[in-house]
Design a protein around this nucleic acid. Structure first.
Lengths: 245, 245
DNA sequence: ACAAAAGTGTTGTGCGTACACCCATGC
DNA sequence: GCATGGGTGTACGCACAACACTTTTGT
């Protein structure tokens, strides 16, 4: 189909996925040890190359699916990374995506079968190339988006407790929240449905389970209502003069 | 330098620039009529292709410079656009950047020499390919960023009046602002320096000129202070289910 | 009975919002 | 002298932040 633009350079285009999960009260990333040169054996994001007949979004979903077996996942483009020497293997433009997934046992096992591991963002190892930069930017994007959109639920099981939800928000925005204010604020939205069941995993008393009312949320969105959780959406980073957003 | 990844597809990578300016009380875009096929003669963003030995950021700056002659411009990456058929000329990945520039006479003349025109965002013509989508996303990004960062000053002359600044913010957030509240809020930041001079262009009485205190702002940023202008940062768009941010 | 986590209301205050009149100047 | 746009202060109400005790149940 190339009929025009013949005289211009062509480039490898890669996709890299920053895969967020929430488990054991910690925000985690799914990382893997690279299985090929260059940088074989070092920690890396899950990545792959763009094919001729797939869009960027499709390629990102394909790559996420390869590692996790999951589809229909919350996934957003983060940014393109295009420094000339970012990948020592070859000039490669990488488009990074971040994904939010609900970790469960199946995913965990499948990921481990691929040599992947869930690692807390508090204990990240050094990553290859510019992957650490991607992770940093993904965290900033996650924080900003959390203050505009109820995306926390993408990281929790369908049924979750309010203490769990609060703990997740505390991880994302890196500060303690007041239990009463948090519950009031989140319940006021009317987007949580209280269930009859209790979860007794983490306390003797047990905490009521809730689920997120996606239908109601979508109807709010259609009406143009804005969901705003008042949460620190991220500090300006010292010396952050990058041209990247 | 390609030593690895030989078996993967290579792609054309384009850059497209959404160039914002503010003039005659309106937010404007610098658009041009395409000079080559396909879609010759139609309205388009300024664009170009990524070369072998330049980063994405560098290429975007080069392309902006070609059209405007300007460098050291406020410019941020918006997003990569990668639908398979987005450009009928050939499979092309486009990375869009938005730029904020201070329109002055010189720029205007140079732009016109290239067949470019400043067009109000209220009167945009249809654009080629997915360029209208890019513009829409750039506007959303501009609105969000305006609420987090004092970027309005990038669109005004070095010396500007408060009525001018207010008018700019009103254009960006699409609502009338109260004069007294606006002035109070913006002056409270301590980031504006009042000059002795007045601008008499737009009123008999004349309005005092101010300049933005970049040094003070940078020192605030270093200290981690957050600049927050309380302005509508953009509505959720109905049916906006794109995977793109 | 005690430890550990869940659940529940009230009060003060600071910030955002609403609002109306005088001033300076050119024509 | 009048029309045009620039400049200024206050009062109210609401939404956010701070805060402590009771309940349940497993051991």
């Amino acid at each position: 189909m190339t009929r025009y633009y013949k005289e211009y350079d062509h480039h490898l285009v890669a996709l890299d996925c920053i895969i967020f999960g929430f488990d054991e009260g910690e925000l985690k990333l799914l990382l893997l040890k690279r299985k090929f040169e260059p940088a074989k054996g070092e920690w890396s994001l899950m990545g792959g190359f763009l094919g001729k007949s797939e869009s960027l979004d499709e390629a990102a979903c394909r790559i996420l699916n390869q590692l996790t077996g999951l589809s229909n996942i919350y996934m957003k483009q983060l940014s393109a990374f295009g420094d000339v020497d970012r990948d020592p293997g070859a000039r490669t433009i990488s488009v990074a995506y971040y994904a939010l997934i609900k970790i469960d046992e199946n995913d965990r096992l499948r990921a481990e079968a691929h040599g992947a591991e869930w690692i807390s963002i508090k204990r990240l190892p050094p990553l290859i190339f510019d992957h650490s930069l991607m992770v940093e930017k993904a965290l900033e994007a996650l924080r900003r988006r959390t203050s505009r959109e109820p995306i926390g639920f993408e990281l929790l099981p369908v049924k979750f407790t309010l203490p769990q939800l609060q703990s997740l928000y505390e991880c994302i925005c890196r500060e303690q929240l007041d239990k009463r204010n948090f519950r009031k604020q989140i319940l006021e939205t009317g987007l949580l449905v209280k269930l009859e069941e209790k979860d007794k995993e983490s306390s003797k008393k047990g905490a009521f389970l809730y689920k997120f009312d996606h239908k109601k949320y979508n109807s709010y969105v259609e009406k143009g209502f804005l969901f705003q959780l008042k949460v620190k959406s991220g500090h300006i980073i010292k010396g952050n003069n990058s041209i990247l957003d």
